[in-house]
Amino acid sequence: MKFLKIMGEYLGGIEFSAGYRWQHWIRAISIFALVATGFYLANPFITFANPSPTPTRFLHAEIREWHIIFGFAMIGAVLYKTIYFFFFKEAKYERESIKDAFNIKLAIQQIMYYMLIAKHPHTRGIYNPLQFWAYTMLYVFFYGIIITGLALYAEVYHAGLGGMLYPFAKAVESFFGGLAYVRLWHHIFMWAIIIVVFIHIYMAVYNAVFGKNGGMDAIFSGMKWEKEE
């Protein structure tokens, strides 16, 4: 094809394993589904035009069901990713990022790159310092929303898993000062996640446009390309 030409020499390799990519997309889809259903549960904005005196169309219960299904999908993805980060062999270069994260010089250069006045720094791990701390906060929010979510879940479903989690739910309830506050914090954690996701998407697109190394493709194909220097 005419527009193809030799672009120097590239180094390639698997950046994200299959499991990694799956959990990322399960998590991503879950977040969008959970935000949409969550807003409905907080204030049911869709109601039937012709009310019937007998409750037969269980819309709220259905939407809650989807909220719970996606909630547990997200919990699975978050747990997988947490274990992956700490224990998986493939996560070696993710763990390397911890060392970069405390490198202030590197962080400053990263900020200068975003301010368009310096080159992108070379990092040892796969995340730059700003990215690493943003993701760390994201996981604080994830665990916040999971803990409050499970506490709310256990109060609705008293048997099975809910029953097993009940003492835990009660402890969470005491910690937050009542179930109303558990719910409010669940809502606040949602907003924190929305904001991180919003910026994350911009950064991903930005890197795809200006990085010119197929960086965005890695989350689909797993392949990372870097120019040899």
């Binding site: 049911p44 005196p53 819309l59 709220h60 219960a61 259905e62």
Partner: peptide
């Protein structure tokens, strides 16, 4: 039952309120 059904009183005194 009405909660799970997504059937809500929108304001006091409306048709939903009459239906409980």
């Amino acid at each position: 039952g009405h909660f799970d059904a997504g059937e809500f009183v929108e304001e006091f005194g409306d048709a939903g309120a009459m239906n409980g």
